[in-house]
Design a binder for these strands. Structure first.
Length: 888
RNA sequence: GGGCCUAUAGCUCAGUUGGUUAGAGCGUUCGCUUGACAUGCGAGAGGUCACAAGUUCGAGUCUUGUUAGGCCCA
């Protein structure tokens, strides 16, 4: 006997172990089945499960479980990425507790420590994924620093280098002066900050007392100024173009150049140019041949290029001193308050410095071209489609991708420098030495590049590196390209774009996946982004503990409508937990009534109307849920299942089945038992991708000996011939009748316990047959003592003490005797008559409009006419009823 | 400044190609220890579909504009 409520904590761990040990998660390259492949975007190895993960992995798991049940050879490739900066920071922090820095250890020892950390703590997120019920092929789990994946990284690097698509260059990069590494544009967050515009006067060379005024938000960079730019058409400065001014404090002679970058509307219209410390100035400097002077070291302290008194100072300290000095020199014209954007590192949260260094770059423009085309011509589809714009926007303006990082943890760049700085790029040191020997004509000593690669460089290879590339493995052959990439929009640039570029370049132009499903962001119930600092983070594991994994999964699925963020409140999860309880109790009811699956049961062969009706509804529900999942309309799938289970199966079918199950007709009882068990099984199958635990548990418990796991069963797919219109008509009529009776009873305050007779006047033979067939059900559910059919002649007698309602044009007298309140019944009928009248007026207006009748499609006109007729019919009956009441 | 998105019941949201009297969950009101379930059952109230104009026989749905909010990029 099932317990009264479902207790997730007791089953989840056990079932997960059972699944995992059974091997049911595994792909089978040797099978003949068509593949279905999702490459799990590898979470950060330092990460722990947050709500965004819960959503993305729930949706992926739904797709995977559904396709696996649908007979596909399914590969869901799990793994984690090595998260260069994040992981290095974690381990450094740990060392810091013992007052050790990574420099104390040295590179090799430090990396050993990182691996130790990974072995010990790197499994956190994958274990949390198990708690979510995720079903990837765990034995195939990969890590971006694996030997195999590292070999792929080297191969890709060397290939791109030899193709001229990777190069080393001295360019401005985003430099993180705390982490001491370059970071990508995408790891920089622009923050609005209150600051100042300092207006400095630079003396014009040879013109005593003449100045040109420039405004800056970063006074300290003036130490690196090598020019002043004015707009070429700015009349104020025409005579100064080509002249020089003398940079105060430094004393350098710098040129005044004409460049359209200078905005005549802004400040004085003249702008100081620091090519080595500003991205825009870098371009201006290039156009005007200005010198690039780097005035900082990698900690963003002023270096030896600057006058002595500033050397070694932090950039912000230098700022103060320079402003003070300018003021002292009488060259500070004014200070304005302003609000401007300042770049911060998303990991370190310090101000990022545009910094001139040697770095390695990928020529992304070349790789982006085919990757853009693949989306343009539909080989890759974004769902929802509008994200394609975001993708195009970025791809068409793509910048060189800086892939080197000044870290220790990561793939060390396979480049070696000869004694003269000559670069040798090879997959191994031996090859590099050999190439160098050929180059120099003798053995030389090489030193390897100390930089490592951006983590995204290796994760971009994930769709093929995990399958064994560059080896031509059976997996690579079968599982590339994948079916869909599921991710959030914030990762389109990091992941999607780069995976497409790399995939197409190294897999003969073949795309890495056909669909990209972009899901929402999970926010708190007020629509705020969840963040630790706001304290509004909801921990998915806590929700799982409290409400069960299935409740969380169903909640996220039901809320995952396309194109809208998810606002999550615990109360929603509670509601869906109640759904799990409901399902549990339906199964419990079935168990109590001995509804057990019958071998060889064929839903097409059931006889009773009720059975035929629920079989048809089940077929419809299976279709709704399946097509929801297939079209990535997860909310439709969840709501369709919810509606069916609660609104149809529990609220109506089980209630209608009760008279049979409690009755004496053994043959009818046997059929209802069999069909109930069958429907319940279908429900478990239909719901399994969304709610894997409770369904598996009920599957196990609702029959004596299940041969296989639910998760390995075939997903239900039915023929529409199972839908029986006649059965639908009969049951729907019964439902309408019961609904109407309940409605008027409740409105007229008839005590719920009172069982009262009803009379149907002038019912058609068909209606009589249907109502008679469902009499027991109507009696039970509408609390009716007896159902009788009467003619017009009986009306006078039965009207007494009756309230009246009209169902399908037939007046139903609900004989409530003493409970009747004539005045209330009269006004109730008047209200109903009013409503009908209003509707009829509208319909008449529509149908008397000749243009509507002539232009609207025939079937629309026909249905509108039919609706009008029906309303008129009902109105007439209601008016008669009202007249009778009024006469009392 | 450029781009994208959103505005429907008190709240959170569905509403795929225009066509029933616009739906759900939560909340709320009334009533119920009805033999699976009070994590429940039954019945109700609650909407000028942001605003304006247009296209159309017909607009929550399409077009344009306005307002408000959000996100991305500069």
């Amino acid at each position: 006997m099932l317990e009264k409520t479902y207790s997730p904590a007791d089953v989840e761990g056990r079932l997960y172990d059972k699944w995992e040990k059974s091997g049911a998660f595994a792909a089978d390259p040797a099978s003949n089945a068509n593949p279905y492949v999702i490459m799990m975007p590898p979470p950060n190895v330092t990460g722990s499960l947050h709500m965004g993960h819960a959503l993305t992995f729930t949706l992926q798991d739904i797709l995977v479980r559904y396709n696996r049940m649908s007979g596909k050879d399914t590969l869901w490739q799990p793994g984690t990425d090595h998260a260069g900066i994040a992981t290095q920071m974690v381990v450094e922090r740990q060392l810091g507790e013992q007052n050790i820095t990574r420099h104390d250890l040295g590179r090799e020892k430090f990396i050993e420590k990182v691996w130790e950390w990974k072995e010990k703590s790197g499994g956190t997120i994958t274990n949390q994924l198990r708690r979510l019920g995720a079903s990837p092929d765990w034995p195939r789990e990969r890590f971006t620093m694996d030997d195999g994946l590292s070999a792929a990284v080297r191969k890709v690097f060397v290939t791109l280098y030899k193709q001229g698509l990777i190069y080393r260059d001295k360019r401005l990069v985003n430099w993180d002066p705390k982490l001491l590494t370059a970071i990508s544009d995408l790891e920089v967050v622009q923050k609005e900050v209150k600051g100042h515009y300092w207006h400095f006067k630079y003396p014009i060379e040879g013109k005593e007392g003449q100045f040109i005024t420039v405004a800056t938000t970063r006074p300290e960079t003036m130490l690196g100024d090598t020019g002043v730019a004015v707009h070429p058409e700015d009349e104020r400065y025409q005579n100064l173009i080509g002249q020089y001014c003398i940079l105060p404090i430094v004393g350098r002679r710098i040129k005044i150049v004409a460049d359209e970058y200078a905005d005549p509307e802004k400040g004085s219209g003249a702008v100081k140019i620091t090519p080595a410390h500003d991205f825009n100035d870098f371009e201006v400097g290039k156009r005007n041949d200005l010198e690039k002077i780097n005035i900082m070291d990698d900690h963003a302290r002023i270096n030896d290029e600057a006058p002595e008194e500033y050397r070694g100072l932090d950039r912000f300290k230098a700022r103060e001193l320079i402003v003070a000095k300018m003021e002292e020199l009488g060259l500070l014209e004014k200070i304005e308050d302003t609000v401007h954007m300042v770049p911060y590192g998303d990991r370190s949260n310090v101000v990022i410095e545009p910094y001139l260094t040697d770095q390695w770059f990928v020529n992304a423009e070349v790789l982006a071209k085919p990757a853009t085309e693949a989306v343009e011509d539909g080989r890759i589809k974004f769902v929802p489609k509008n994200w394609e714009n975001t993708y195009f926007e970025w791809m068409r303006n793509i910048q060189p991708w800086c892939i080197s990082r000044q870290l220790w943890w990561g793939h060390r760049i396979p480049a070696w420098f000869g004694p003269d700085g000559e670069i040798f790029v090879e997959e191994t040191e031996e090859e590099a030495l050999a190439t160098a020997k050929a180059h120099f004509g003798k053995d030389v000593e090489l030193t390897q590049e100390t930089d490592v690669l951006d983590t995204w460089f290796s994760s971009a290879l994930w769709p093929f590196s995990t399958l064994g590339w560059p080896d031509k493995t059976p997996e690579l052959n079968k599982y590339y390209p994948g079916d869909v990439l599921v991710t959030g929009f914030d990762i389109i640039f990091f992941w999607v774009a780069r995976m497409i570029m790399m995939g197409m370049h190294f897999m003969d132009g073949e795309v890495p996946f056909k669909d990209v499903y972009i899901h929402a962001l999970v926010r708190d119930e007020h629509g705020q982004k969840m963040s630790k600092s706001k304290g509004n983070v909801i921990d998915p594991l806590e929700l799982i503990d409290e409400y069960g994994c299935d409740a969380l999964r169903l909640t996220l699925t039901a809320l995952a409508a396309q194109g809208r963020d998810i606002k999550l409140a615990a109360s929603r999860v509670e509601g869906y937990r109640n759904f799990a309880t409901k399902l549990w109790n339906a199964a419990r009811f079935a168990e109590m009534n001995e509804c057990k699956p019958v071998d060889g049961f064929n839903p097409a062969n059931v006889n009773s109307t009720l059975a035929r009706w629920i079989v048809g509804k089940t077929a419809e529900a299976a279709k709704t849920v399946a097509s929801g999942i297939e079209s990535y309309r997860f909310n439709d799938a969840a709501n369709g299942a919810y509606q069916f289970v609660w609104g149809t199966f529990c609220d109506w079918y089980l209630e209608l089945a009760k008279p049979v199950l409690m009755g004496q007709d053994e043959e009818a009882k046997a059929e209802i038992r069999a069909v109930t068990a069958w429907v319940l099984d279908q429900i478990l199958l239909i719901l399994h991708p969304i709610m894997p635990y409770i369904t598996e548990e009920l599957w196990e418990k609702s029959a004596d000996n299940r041969a296989t796991l639910l998760m390995s069963q075939a997903y239900p797919k039915f023929n529409d011939t199972l839908i029986d219109r006649a059965a639908e008509d009969e049951i729907d009529l019964a439902i309408r009748l019961i609904g109407n009776i309940r409605g008027v009873r409740s409105e007229m305050n008839v005590p719920p316990a009172a069982e009262v007779p009803i009379y149907l006047v002038d019912a058609s033979d068909a209606m009589k047959a249907a109502v008679s067939a469902q009499e027991a059900q109507v009696k039970r559910l509408a609390r009716v003592a007896a159902v009788e059919f009467k003619g017009q002649g009986d009306v006078a007698t039965i009207a007494k003490g009756a309230i009246q309602t009209v169902v399908d044009g037939v007046t139903v007298f609900v004989s409530v005797a003493d409970f009747i309140d004539v005045a209330a019944e009269k006004s109730r009928l008047e209200k109903e008559i009013d409503g009908k009248n209003k509707y009829i007026k509208g319909q008449e207006g529509k149908l008397s409009n000749e243009i509507f009748v002539s232009r609207a499609p025939e079937h629309i006109v026909a249905t509108e006419k039919a609706k009008l007729e029906e309303a008129r019919d009902t109105l007439a009956k209601l008016q008669e009823a009202h007249a009778r009441i009024a006469a009392m």
